[in-house]
Simulated scan of single mutants.
Amino acid sequence: MGDCFSLQVSVMIPKVSTWVIALSILKVSIEQVKAARALLRWSQNDLAEASGVSIPTVKRLEATTGDLGGRAATVAAIRSALETAGVEFIPENGGGAGVRLRK
């Protein structure tokens, strides 16, 4: 074979900050999660199973008030499970945040 040479290529990929991802996710409160479960007639176990989040984590998160805390992936999994089941999260718009079932 003829002469061989090595080529090394460097590619710069910008890092996406966690705060940018967090800003793109609509805030959901613990109260909205509980109301959504009630509309679906889901237990904490049902939510854990549908979201892939452990039962102790769901219980720990629901024992607080305010915005749904935890890791961004956990929040996204819980929200996605509820939305897939037909829940719509209503943002604070002067009338208060809430939830409803899609038609």
Rank of each mutant, 00 (worst) to 15 (best):
A73C: 05
A63V: 01
A35R: 13
M12K: 13
T65R: 15
S24Y: 09
T84G: 09
V9H: 08
V87H: 03
I21K: 14
I55Q: 15
V75D: 00
I21F: 09
S10C: 08
F89E: 04
R102Q: 08
I21S: 13
F89I: 03
T74G: 04
G52W: 07
V75C: 07
A77Q: 11
P56F: 00
M12V: 13
V11I: 15
G52F: 06
V75Q: 10
V99W: 02
L61S: 08
S80C: 12
V99Q: 02
E49S: 09
M12E: 14
M1I: 03
G96D: 00
K34I: 13
A50R: 15
E31Y: 00
W19C: 05
L7D: 11
A77R: 14
A22Y: 08
E88K: 09
F5K: 07
V33C: 05
G98Q: 04
A85N: 09
A63C: 08
A63W: 02
K34E: 05
T57K: 05
R79A: 07
R100Y: 02
V9C: 07
A81I: 10
G95M: 03
L47W: 06
I55L: 14
I25M: 14
E92R: 02
R37Y: 04
A50G: 05
N45T: 12
N45H: 11
S6E: 15
L26Y: 04
E88R: 12
D46S: 15
L47S: 03
L40Y: 11
A97T: 02
R71D: 12
T65I: 03
A81R: 13
T18A: 14
F89D: 06
V28F: 02
A22D: 14
S29D: 09
E83Q: 14
S43R: 11
V33R: 04
